[in-house]
Design a protein around this nucleic acid. Structure first.
Lengths: 172, 172
DNA sequence: GTCATATACTTTAAGTATGAAATGTATTGG
DNA sequence: CCAATACATTTCATACTTAAAGTATATGAC
C-alpha cells in the first residue's frame, strides 16, 4: 500500500534526482562562497583537502583516483596550485615517473582558514533539518555508497580486458 | 549518548561529504555510460531532460535557473544542441530579447531512447539498497532540499541590494 | 643485455563552466 | 516622448574536464 508497481521501477531514479538536486545546490553555495571569501574554486578546495589529510603527500594517480577525475585534469590543477605556491611537486628519486605532491606551509595555512568557513556554509545550508534526520541520512548514505561503489567497480572491471582474474572485491 | 559534542558541529559536514561522494560516483557511471551507449554527455542529457518535461519549450534564463548553471554556459550548450538538430531556438516575436528553446522531434526521439537506459544504470547502482531504505532516503532528501533551497535563496537575496522587499519564500 | 609491455604522467583537442562586461531590447517615470 | 532603468542574452577571458594520444621510465621474459 506504500506504492504502486510503477514506483518500484522509478524509485531509484527519484532518489537519484533528489540527491543530484541537493548536491547541485550545496555545490553552488560552496563554489560561490569560495570565490567571494577566498577567491578560490571548488576543484582547488577538493584537491587541497585531499592533501591536507596526509603528512607526506600523494602521487598524481592517487589524487586522480580519490577525486574521481582524469589524470590530465590533475596535471593542470596541480600546475596552477604549484604556481600559487600552495602545493609542492617533486619527482620521486626512486621512480622518476612518479610526481609526489604535497601542501606547502603556505598551502596548509591557507587551507586551515577555509575549513571553518566551509563547515559554517554547510551547517547553514542544513540548519533546517533536525539532528536526528541528519544522523539517519548519513547512515542511509553510507549504505548507498556500498552499493554504488560496487557498481562503479563492476563497470571499471568490465571495461578492462586484461583484468579478468579478480579484483579484491570480487567473490572467489 | 548517540554522539559527542564534536559530532554536533561536524555532522552536517559528514552528511555533505557522504552526499558528494555518492553523487560523484553515480555521475561517473552515468557520464561513462552516456558516452559509451549514446556518444553523449551529462550536460546535454540534463538539458534535454529539462526540455522534455515541457510542451512549449523554455527560455534561456529558465534553463539557466533550473540547471543552476551560468547564462553563458546555456548559450554554448544550446548552440551545440541546435547544431545537432536536437533542439530548436526561436526568438519570441512579442519580446525580442527572449529566445524560446524546445526539443525538435528528433531531439524528443533521441531522448526517449536514453530514458530507459538511464533508469537502468541508476537502478543497477542502487540495487544493493533495500526498497524501504530508498523510500526513507527520498523522504529525508526532500526535507533536506527545503533547507538547502532556503539557504540558496537567502544567499542570492543577500547579493542583490535592490531586492530587499521580500521574495515569495520569505515570511511576511 | 634487449625488447616487449606496463606504468606514471603530460599533452592535445574539444567540450563544459564561470563571472564580468557588452549588446540589444523592453518598460517606466517624468 | 524619452531618458533612465531593468531585463534577456551573448561575448569574452579564464578555468576546469574529459578521452585519447604521446613521452618517459620501469619491469620482466628471454
Amino acid at each position: 500500500m506504500t506504492g504502486s508497481a510503477n514506483d518500484e521501477a522509478t524509485l531509484p531514479l527519484k532518489v537519484w534526482l533528489a540527491l543530484f538536486s541537493n548536491v547541485r545546490q550545496i555545490e553552488w553555495l560552496i563554489r560561490t562562497n569560495l570565490r567571494e571569501s577566498f577567491g578560490s574554486t571548488l576543484p582547488r578546495f577538493d584537491l587541497l583537502s585531499q592533501l591536507y589529510r596526509v603528512a607526506d603527500g600523494m602521487t598524481m594517480s592517487e589524487l586522480s583516483t580519490r577525486l574521481m577525475v582524469s589524470n590530465g585534469n590533475v596535471t593542470g590543477l596541480i600546475a596552477r596550485l604549484v604556481a600559487e605556491r600552495l602545493v609542492s611537486r617533486v619527482a620521486d628519486p626512486q621512480d622518476k615517473r612518479i610526481q609526489r605532491v604535497a601542501l606547502t606551509p603556505k598551502g596548509r595555512r591557507v587551507f586551515e582558514t577555509m575549513i571553518p568557513a566551509n563547515q559554517a556554509w554547510v551547517s547553514a545550508a542544513m540548519a533546517g533539518v533536525p539532528r536526528d534526520d541528519l544522523v539517519e541520512l548519513q547512515a542511509l548514505l553510507q549504505k548507498l555508497k556500498v552499493s554504488v561503489s560496487g557498481a562503479v567497480q563492476m563497470h571499471k572491471a568490465g571495461e578492462v580486458p586484461g583484468d579478468q582474474d579478480g579484483p579484491p572485491w570480487a567473490a572467489p
